[in-house]
């Protein structure tokens, strides 16, 4: 049985605690869920990582 070659791309979702603004980017080393990243530029709330997940791309 040959194993299917699959590529998993990991993503990080950041969200502001106050205005709930979301942004999705590629995972970076050192990311973990609930890590505080920075202040929100629009409302000055805390931007936190809320999700890290993998999406599979099958060629």
């Amino acid at each position: 049985m040959a194993r299917k070659i699959k590529t998993v791309i990991s993503y990080t979702v950041e969200q502001c605690d106050s205005c709930t603004e979301l942004s999705k980017r590629k995972f970076l080393s050192g990311d973990y869920i609930f890590k505080i990243i920075s202040k929100c530029p629009s409302c000055n709330g805390e931007i936190r990582i809320t999700k890290i997940f993998g999406e599979t791309i099958t060629p």
């Binding site: 998993v8 990991s10 999700k51 890290i52 997940f53 993998g54 999406e55």
Partner: peptide, 9 residues
């Protein structure tokens, strides 16, 4: 045991 899937999170 591998990276969390979107369906799960």
């Amino acid at each position: 045991i591998s990276l969390l899937k979107k369906e799960i999170i």
